[in-house]
C-alpha cells in the first residue's frame, strides 16, 4: 500500500520533470518545432475493478491468532474494504479460503480452516454482500504461504484468503 503510494508520487515527479525539460530546450534552440503536447498525468497502478487492485489495494488476506477464528480490528477494516469493493462491482464473486499453520493436526485444521473462511464470509454478508456471491473452502494446513517453522511464518499461514472470480 505504502509502496504503491510512493511509486505514484515517483511517477508524478517523473512526469513533471518531463513537462519542464522541453520548455528549457525550447528556450535554447529557437528553430526547433514546437514540442508535442504533454499528456496530463494519469494515475498508474491497477484499474480499480481489477483482481490486482482487489488483491493489492483493497487487500485479499486477513490474519488469525493461533487456534483462533475471530476477526480483529485490522481484519474487520480490511473486510469492510472488500465488502465495499464487492458492492461496487456486483458481477464479481468471491471464494474465501481458510488456512492454518502447521502446529495442528490435519483433520482439526480442516475444521479450523472452515471456521476461518466462514468467519470472513459471515462478516462480508453482515456488511451487505449477497451470500450467494460468496463461497468458502478450507485447506487446513495443506497450502501454506511459507514453510519456515517459526512464528512469523505460522502467523502468515493463519489466514483467510479471498479470491475474486
Amino acid at each position: 500500500m505504502k509502496l504503491r503510494f510512493l511509486s505514484l508520487i515517483a511517477a508524478a515527479i517523473l512526469l513533471s520533470a518531463c513537462a519542464k525539460k522541453p520548455v528549457e530546450t525550447v528556450a535554447a534552440v529557437a528553430a526547433a518545432p514546437p514540442p508535442p503536447p504533454v499528456a496530463a498525468p494519469k494515475p498508474t497502478g491497477p484499474a480499480p475493478d481489477s483482481l490486482e487492485y482487489f488483491n493489492t489495494v483493497v487487500g485479499n488476506l486477513v490474519s488469525f491468532g493461533y487456534d483462533k477464528y475471530d476477526l480483529d480490528a485490522a481484519a474487520q477494516s480490511k473486510l469492510k474494504g472488500q465488502a465495499a469493493w464487492l458492492k461496487q462491482y456486483p458481477a464479481r464473486t468471491l471464494t474465501v479460503e481458510g488456512h492454518c499453520d502447521e502446529r495442528g493436526t490435519r483433520e482439526y485444521n480442516l475444521g479450523l480452516g472452515d471456521r476461518r473462511s466462514n468467519a470472513v464470509r459471515q462478516f462480508l454478508v453482515a456488511e451487505g454482500v449477497a451470500a450467494a456471491r460468496l463461497k468458502t473452502i478450507s485447506y487446513g494446513k495443506e497450502r501454506p504461504a511459507c514453510v519456515t517453522s517459526d512464528e512469523t511464518c505460522w502467523a502468515r499461514n493463519r489466514r483467510g484468503a479471498s479470491t475474486v472470480q
Partner: peptide
Amino acid sequence: GMTYAPRFSPDGNGVAFSAALNGN
C-alpha cells in the same frame, strides 16, 4: 459443505465422518 475425517465402522457397512456447515 466439506465432508472429511472418514473412518469405517468395524463391520465395514458404515462410515463415520465430519460434515462442516457454516463453519461448524
